[in-house]
Design a protein around this nucleic acid. Sequence first.
DNA 1: GTCACTAATGCACACGTGTGCAAAGGAGTA
DNA 2: TACTCCTTTGCACACGTGTGCATTAGTGAC
Lengths: 343, 343
Amino acid sequence: MSVTIKDIAKATGVSHSTVSRAMRGSSLISEETTKRIKETALNLGYFPSAAARSLKTNRSQALGIIVSNIDDPYFSEILQGIEEIGQNNNYSLFIAASQRDPEREVSIVQAMRQHRVDGVIICSTNFSDQQSKQFSKYGIPIVVINNQAAEDYRYSIYHDDMDGSQQLTRHLIELGHRKIAYLGYALSGRTNMDRLAGFRHEMESARLTIPPGYIHQITESGLSGGLSGVDHFLRLAEHPTALVCYNDMLAIGVIRGLRQAGVSIPQEISVTGFDNIDFSAFTDPPLTTFDQPKHFIGAEATRLLLNLLNTTSLEETSWHDNVRILKGKLLLRESTAPPLASH
Amino acid sequence: MSVTIKDIAKATGVSHSTVSRAMRGSSLISEETTKRIKETALNLGYFPSAAARSLKTNRSQALGIIVSNIDDPYFSEILQGIEEIGQNNNYSLFIAASQRDPEREVSIVQAMRQHRVDGVIICSTNFSDQQSKQFSKYGIPIVVINNQAAEDYRYSIYHDDMDGSQQLTRHLIELGHRKIAYLGYALSGRTNMDRLAGFRHEMESARLTIPPGYIHQITESGLSGGLSGVDHFLRLAEHPTALVCYNDMLAIGVIRGLRQAGVSIPQEISVTGFDNIDFSAFTDPPLTTFDQPKHFIGAEATRLLLNLLNTTSLEETSWHDNVRILKGKLLLRESTAPPLASH
DNA sequence: GTCACTAATGCACACGTGTGCAAAGGAGTA
DNA sequence: TACTCCTTTGCACACGTGTGCATTAGTGAC
């Protein structure tokens, strides 16, 4: 169908091996021949077949990227970072969304192994450990971002969720809040657990009790999840004065829900998010949150993976250096304030 | 490196061709042998090499997807639709972001041609016509979503921007507004032009004049673009009472900007968006906008492309049937209201 | 003129899979 | 027994590219 190396050989009157060498810029071929070959290649619109090349070289120049959802801003901002570095280094990206569905996970792993991706980035907090082992088992390097099972025998990058959650909670406590609740997202695995743990730890340090019902986990994702979270907390006999939300998406939903219920933010209830997605600066009031360098995380994970690919010697010893924890930072905006005196 | 068809052949004591046939479920091979082969394949962890298969069959089982940005909700929601259908049909996706950068466009096209993608979906309003021709020139089917150059000789899906913009503008006029302004995004090519045209058309129909400065194009994308848009309009001697924004992202930025300036919405100024991204229902006030079935658009484009791949006979005649215009619908929320009497 | 050496190119095989054709074996029929 | 037919399997080549090795031509030295 498309023009091959042989067509160029025929057109130039040389053998196909000469063309192959010339295209790769081998010093074996004379300058003049190389030039002639490259010209006709350009004229004929030749593009080397990645399939054939990959067959021979065992390199596909493709990476596999697995996320939970593409249309969640947290993931898509990371993706943008990955994409940039990947493209700069001439790697193409197979991107797939697991949708937190085990069946999809299986078929994604299958597809990527068939395509012989050179490496994989898993950016899905609850991606099955069993599936990700499929890669490492067959020698495909893998970098996990913020995975629930960030075992130290793998390369991984994650942010310190515990720390972030503690900072947010402490901020609320310092403002004078005593009745603080946590709204979690049950399907998010380790990330959610860590953030909850951070919340709990800080509450204990301040010797504050967490009344029943003040820790609520929902299974509904995203913005609308925030709405049902609000329903729950407003139904409690005693309302919390502050709400620590698992992430910005939930928090934005919560803000909307509180507004609809006629509750003023931050006067009656303070709200915090997590991640600092772009929209969190545009809510009303703007959201106090914990900033994650999402673009940077994606870029960094890709750089790490590319390093792995170019390192032939995989010394076991260097592995532990490659678990990188990226610190975020507290971002104070207007959705948090001291509680009203009456409370 | 990884286990091949020959390894299975050796382990089962048959020839590699028998294995090949058995794996594909050929009726030529006896049931018993097939079963034996499939079992050992499973045990050895065999995955067919897409490269080798693609070399032989001229089918890569991969699609190329080009968007402007991954982290724009409009695109990522479409991507989610594409991803779903693609994955259901066992196609892997090469996803790339052009960033509206000509150099990147070139390298994306190059990478996708090398990988011999079976088809391409272009979802970048201003993707260069010259580059997209590179695909059709070499027989790679291409479906364009909402492209600026939706020539009828290609398969394309787009929404009726003109119509949507007219409906929004008419809605404002019916509410009683007479001083209506348009905030556009200059880099968005045809889409922006059409929406502006719809606005103009409706204003003319109502015999309303558009004062100088009431049509403003910015080059800054996204949310922050909305802020600078507000700056412009508030600097005008006579403020508009309603603002038609190119899309939701801009509108959300505008809402924030107006809030900061102490302008009440919709009492003093009504605001409309376009696209209905998830967040637009969660602003304060919720945004009146024009709903696009983004997920459906992505899915539909993919179905169309897959149809093309499975149709051997490309009858010229059917081409025009495949320019599909998807109608959206007006979504009235609370960011629009009649103007104050004083105006 | 012979030899050694270098530069430039071609030959032939390999990568993993699919497929047309031949071959082998068995069953059935006359 | 001889023939035909069908089922099941193997042989061998092809896809497009990369590469070790052999080959050729050219240059210089003796």
